[in-house]
């Protein structure tokens, strides 16, 4: 992981050095819209959220997570739309692996929530595979209720905690 981090930083630094185009912000949107746009010449900072090949783009523009109803692992229409984008991104950026992390809200017993988080993550994984992403590039894990992102004990928080997050790992950079 340390190697990967260093490599990403190095790429980012090179990108910054190459960014001398004064109109880069104008061009960034155009670049982001192109399906295969990338690199310093496109006018955005490689590795930034505007770089369609970046993990930041995946996380923020494609959307790295889908949410679930209470005690459910079925994918909503909204979730399928997000996952369609994830599948597209993964097929385009074929060097990356992904680990899908399943989570539950705190309203449940520890063991059951572990299994429920696994069900959710597996739903996502199966959907991505059905869209053509090779299963060899995907793994899933459940954190049950161990890693909430919102900490209030109300449905507004629970709804965000019942999630499956697709975490991109930069396998291409670690060789």
């Amino acid at each position: 992981m340390k190697l990967a981090t260093k490599a990403v930083l190095l790429v980012a630094a090179l990108g910054l050095a190459a960014c001398t185009n004064p109109n880069r912000f104008d061009n960034a949107d155009a670049g982001a819209l192109g399906p295969n746009a990338g690199g310093a010449n496109a006018g955005f900072v490689p590795g930034s959220v505007d770089d369609p090949t970046s993990t930041a783009y995946f996380t923020q523009r494609v959307g790295d997570r889908v949410l679930f109803a209470v005690d459910q692992s079925t994918l909503s229409p909204e979730a399928r739309t997000v996952l369609d984008g994830q599948a597209q991104w993964l097929l385009t950026n074929s060097d990356y692996l992904a680990i899908i992390e399943g989570h539950a809200d705190e309203q449940g017993t520890r063991e059951y929530n572990l299994a429920l988080g696994a069900r959710r993550a597996n739903s996502v994984m199966e959907y991505l595979v059905s869209k053509g992403v090779p299963s060899s590039r995907l793994k899933f894990i459940s954190y049950g209720k161990e890693r909430p992102i919102e900490i209030c004990s109300e449905e507004s928080c629970y709804a965000k905690n019942r999630r499956a997050v697709t975490v991109i790992s930069a396998s291409s950079l670690t060789g």
């Binding site: 572990l114 069900r119 459940s142």
Partner: peptide
């Protein structure tokens, strides 16, 4: 113990 394979535990 429990073992998870796919969606099944």
């Amino acid at each position: 113990y429990s073992l998870t394979q796919g969606s099944n535990t």
